[in-house]
């Protein structure tokens, strides 16, 4: 489960002064649910997810991920999540297997468990063919699969995806979308951020619309339509953003 409680993140910039990248954001995502954070570029999605992944520390507020506090138990939080974003690249000079092994070892898996888990993942994602190939020699699609295997090697209960399909071709994006859906089926808690409306409509159980660091609206697509009027998600999104959530 993910439980964000009044999360705030303030950056200080010499030129622009104080920037409230995430401002008083609270939400909840249960196991077997996909929570979609929808927002334009710079809305605060990445900062919010980085705080959940303990890569950044909240300025105020807190969050619980898989029962652990992001401020006080960051290492336990990281051991319980699989985090994937456009910024989580692979080590080009390691092979696909070495890449997954490295993270498995950091997660504290024993060698026998790790090898079993790698065999399983490489077979499920059809990656055995390029197991020993260096990551910088892989195609974008192959790289994405290695990233997925990397996030799953320790079988985490919580998955955090930050715009995972950004810049990917249709086929590769589809693989990722199917994988996220599979995570829900397996009872994982999933938080997923994007600015692609169609992906949110297809995948998410609950949608949170974030703008200028604030969570302006939240609910299922049905409840959002009820509150903000008819139309597709794009129409609703624009009405929410323009109306400031009213």
């Amino acid at each position: 489960m993910i439980e964000a409680n009044q999360l705030c993140k303030v950056f200080r910039d010499k030129k622009r002064g104080e920037i409230r990248a995430v401002d008083d954001v609270s939400f909840r995502c249960l196991p077997g649910q996909i929570y979609g954070l929808l927002g334009v570029n710079g809305a605060g999605k990445t900062t919010c997810q980085r705080m959940l992944a303990t890569i950044l520390q909240p300025t105020s507020g807190t969050a619980k991920v898989a029962g652990y506090d992001v401020v006080n138990e960051p290492e336990k939080v990281r051991a319980s999540i699989g985090f994937m974003s456009t910024a989580t690249a692979l080590y080009g000079r390691l092979s696909a297997q070495e890449m997954v092994e490295y993270f498995g070892r950091l997660y504290g898996l024993t060698e026998s468990v790790l090898q079993k888990r790698i065999d399983e993942l490489f077979t499920v994602f059809d990656m055995n063919e390029y197991r020993d190939r260096r990551c910088d020699k892989l195609s974008t699609g192959m790289k994405q699969k290695v990233s997925v295997a990397r996030t799953l090697v320790h079988d985490p209960p919580v998955m955090i995806f930050d715009e995972p399909t950004l810049g990917l071709d249709v086929m590769t994006a589809r693989t990722i979308v199917n994988f996220i859906r599979d995570c829900r089926t397996r009872g994982r808690t999933v938080i997923f951020s994007t600015h692609v409306m169609s992906e949110v409509e297809k995948l998410c159980d609950i949608i949170g619309i974030i703008h200028n660091g604030r969570l302006l609206a939240e609910g299922t697509i049905g409840s959002l339509r009820e509150k903000y009027g008819p139309g597709d998600l794009e129409d609703i999104f624009i009405r929410v953003v323009e109306g400031g959530g009213r």
Binding site: T54, K76, T88, A89, Y91, Y107
Partner: peptide, 14 residues
């Protein structure tokens, strides 16, 4: 530069 910093920071290594 290669974008692997975030990858390693989200692992449980301190």
């Amino acid at each position: 530069e290669r974008g692997t910093m975030e990858t390693i920071l989200c692992s449980p290594v301190s």
